[in-house]
Amino acid sequence: MTPDDMLTRLSGRLSLRRRLAVVAVLLAGAAMSLLTGLLWATEPALPTRTQAAFGAMIAVGLAWVAYAVWVLTRRLPLFALDRVVAAWLGLAATVAVAVPVAVIAARPVALLIVAVLLLAALANLRRGLTRRAALLRRKRELDG
């Protein structure tokens, strides 16, 4: 395999499997935002904290929709940048939603669940950053 062949493989489009996964993320984010918005609209007398939580959930869903649209419409090679962005988004969503829930619940089980979610989000971020660095290093090697 020549360096040009390898660069072509590194620069390729998203695989069908990856595209389907991103479409699933788009649909899940849209459904989450839509259903939460509909619930919020039909219950106007909710407490302020509940309204804030609904707003945060809608924002998280719309952020995933924006991410999916960005990945699906991107015309340049991503070199795992999409995975890094998704990992940061997952970490932000975990912090924005799970941490306040654990603080409000103030139960050891809730704190344990949030700790596990945060560790998983951080591990996912590290894996994404490592993968991106490896791809970029390989690209530099092949470019000469």
Rank of each mutant, 00 (worst) to 15 (best):
T2R: 01
T2N: 02
T2W: 08
D4S: 12
D4H: 07
D4K: 10
D5W: 11
D5S: 11
M6N: 08
M6H: 13
L7Q: 04
T8L: 11
L10E: 09
S11R: 12
G12K: 07
R13D: 12
L14G: 06
S15V: 03
S15G: 15
S15L: 04
R17I: 03
R17S: 15
R19W: 14
V22N: 00
A24C: 12
V25Y: 04
L26W: 04
L27K: 01
L27A: 14
L27Q: 10
A28V: 11
A28S: 15
A28K: 06
A30Q: 10
A30E: 06
A30I: 08
A31S: 10
A31G: 06
L34F: 15
L35E: 09
L35S: 07
G37D: 06
L38G: 08
L38E: 15
W40G: 02
A41I: 09
T42F: 03
P44K: 06
A45M: 09
A45Q: 14
Q51L: 11
A52W: 12
F54Y: 11
A56E: 04
I58S: 05
A59I: 10
V60L: 09
V60C: 06
V60D: 03
G61S: 10
G61Q: 07
G61A: 12
G61C: 08
L62I: 15
L62Q: 05
A63T: 06
A63G: 09
W64A: 00
W64K: 04
V65L: 07
V65Q: 07
A66N: 07
A68D: 08
V69Y: 03
W70I: 05
W70K: 04
V71L: 09
V71T: 08
L72P: 05
R74K: 06
R75Y: 01
R75F: 01
L76N: 13
L78W: 07
A80L: 05
L81E: 11
L81K: 08
D82Q: 15
D82K: 09
V84D: 00
V84E: 10
A86N: 05
A87P: 05
A87G: 14
L89C: 12
L91K: 01
L91P: 01
L91S: 08
A92Q: 05
A93M: 02
T94M: 12
T94K: 03
V95K: 01
V95S: 02
V97M: 14
A98F: 05
P100Y: 01
V101K: 01
V103S: 05
A105F: 00
A105I: 06
A105R: 15
A106Q: 07
P108T: 04
P108D: 00
V109Q: 04
L111E: 03
L111H: 02
V114P: 02
A115G: 10
V116R: 02
V116W: 12
L117H: 02
L118Y: 02
L118K: 00
L119S: 14
A120G: 01
A120F: 09
A121P: 00
A121E: 00
L122V: 13
L125W: 12
R127T: 09
R127C: 04
G128A: 13
L129Y: 12
R131Y: 00
R131M: 15
A133S: 15
A134I: 09
A134W: 11
A134F: 12
L136H: 05
R138G: 02
K139C: 10
K139N: 04
K139M: 14
R140K: 11
L142R: 03
D143P: 01
D143Y: 07
D143A: 14
G144W: 11
